[in-house]
């Protein structure tokens, strides 16, 4: 009987470990995905029916063992990259990601050359 209890205990603690991890991934994901029908809100903030459905789907997928990356590509294949608040690093976004770097080089060169002895 005690072993039985212990087994149940282990079972519960096991799932709860897994669920803590899923919970963390879930929270992160719904903050980084856009609610398609809202005015610039992420899924976490939104209570729109579509957002609620999507959150459910994301939770299901996480519980089915899907990774964050798989879920993101699953959704962006269907809803376009517009759904990702984290714009993918690709050719069309190259200026977005490199822009700040180029700019600071340019401005730094311009100002330091002009004013520094």
């Amino acid at each position: 009987m005690r072993i039985y209890h212990l087994m149940i205990f282990l079972l519960i603690s096991n799932t709860s470990f897994a669920s803590v991890d899923i919970e963390r991934q879930y929270t992160k994901l719904i903050e980084e995905l856009r609610c398609m029908v809202c005015q610039n809100q992420n899924l976490a903030e939104s209570e729109a029916p579509l957002a609620v459905d999507m959150k459910e789907k994301i939770r299901d997928m996480l519980e089915a063992g899907k990774t964050e990356k798989e879920i993101k590509s699953f959704l962006s294949e269907r809803y376009s990259s517009y759904i990702l608040y984290d714009p993918p690093v690709n050719m069309q976004n190259i200026l977005l990601w490199l822009g700040p770097f180029i700019f600071i080089m340019f401005l730094g060169y311009f100002l330091l050359r002009r004013y520094i002895k």
Binding site: E31, E32, R34, N42, S80, S81, Y82, I83, L84, Y85, D86, P87, P88, Q92, N93, L96
Partner: peptide, 10 residues
């Protein structure tokens, strides 16, 4: 080109 969203992670 394909429309994107730029948000908190960026």
């Amino acid at each position: 080109l394909e429309k994107i969203s730029v948000g908190v992670p960026y």
